[in-house]
Amino acid sequence: MLVKEIIEVLDARLLCGEERQDYGVEVAFASDLMSDVLTLKDDHVLLITGLANMQTIRTAEMSDIHCVVFARNKKVSPEMIELARENDIILIECRYSMFKTCGLLYGSGLKAIY
């Protein structure tokens, strides 16, 4: 599923990675626990989370995750966006709950990791 499709399905806002909207994710993972995210082995993962702090971006960096959706209308700081840009991570802000975010993406055919 392409980044621009994700944005459309979620009626969401792209925060950084404007030039990479044709990036495609293959699987999705929803979690607020970063140690859990750090166990993932897959490539092209979309991370859906309600945890919006610097460690979310660091975790994406360490796990080679290149696209993150922040659910629950979480506000992303300028420092987070800067760190994401440095590491080629696309950030998307979405006003829906994590439940609805997962529901809409799953309903659009995005697969789960396991």
Partner: peptide, 16 residues
């Protein structure tokens, strides 16, 4: 045994 994402996806389908 399913993940947050998948069980949410299925439940959403069920109740939407």
């Amino acid at each position: 045994l399913l993940s947050n994402f998948e069980i949410s996806g299925r439940l959403y389908e069920l109740i939407k």
